[in-house]
Design a protein around this nucleic acid. Sequence first.
DNA 1: ATGACTTGTAATACAAGA
Length: 265
Amino acid sequence: MAKMRIATWNVNSIRQRLDHLSRFVAEHQPDVLAMQETKVADELFPVEHLKGLGYRFFVIHGQKSYNGVAIASRLPFTAPEPRVWCGKDDRRHASMLLPGYVELHNFYVPSGGPDPDPEANPRFAHKLQFLEEMAAWAAADQIHKRKVLIVGDLNVAPLEWDVWDHKRLVRSVGHTPGESRAMEKLWAAGKLVDAPRHFTPAPEQLYSWWGYRFPQSFEKNYGWRLDHALASPKLMPQVKAITTVKDTRTWEKPSDHVPILVDIA
DNA sequence: ATGACTTGTAATACAAGA
């Protein structure tokens, strides 16, 4: 495999996004599509639609209504058994081993609820625990010794320049200092490179999510960088480009997240 | 001033997103 293009996208319900998936695949031709928030039970997953787009190999790890991750691939792979995070079988992680011994991990980290206080808000406590478990796994599994790519909606905008107004949002879930520290611990535990920031260093703004609730959030560029691509040191030399496909946010009835392309040599 | 919207499930509202 000379080149491989991996896409990550929080589709916010795959059944609502089939036309967007078709258009996105036609325009960008990813070999591998890692999706989050599929929001569908496995038996109702739109396999046939994705087969029609050229994907023959799947990891489908979803549930009714909430969360859910999936990987669709044009390349064959082996997939390990799914593992449980935070003692909950809530379908937030899928992984696979691609040709070239590239290990792909697709994550959907809990959003954390409205209140950034782990004592008062169990959903925020869950989020922090999830990020801690990711860091513990990265260290214990010694992912820095392999070619590992972690992608997905990690629901943290870790840097000041990853949100449209740092001062205004620094006490908001997704951009608190505690969450940024948790992300930094993950990076350190796996010796991971924040690949989008490698190609677009701070202080340049870089976003992947524009909320529905703030009027004209996209037009005003009130964005957050919640979606990530983290490369282990053994893989990073092969990461040739990162592309945020902002265009999809302008399509009719879009996901609030946009896809990110990772090009690997 | 995340309040505004979107989704799924269910049922004319609620939970969750972040």
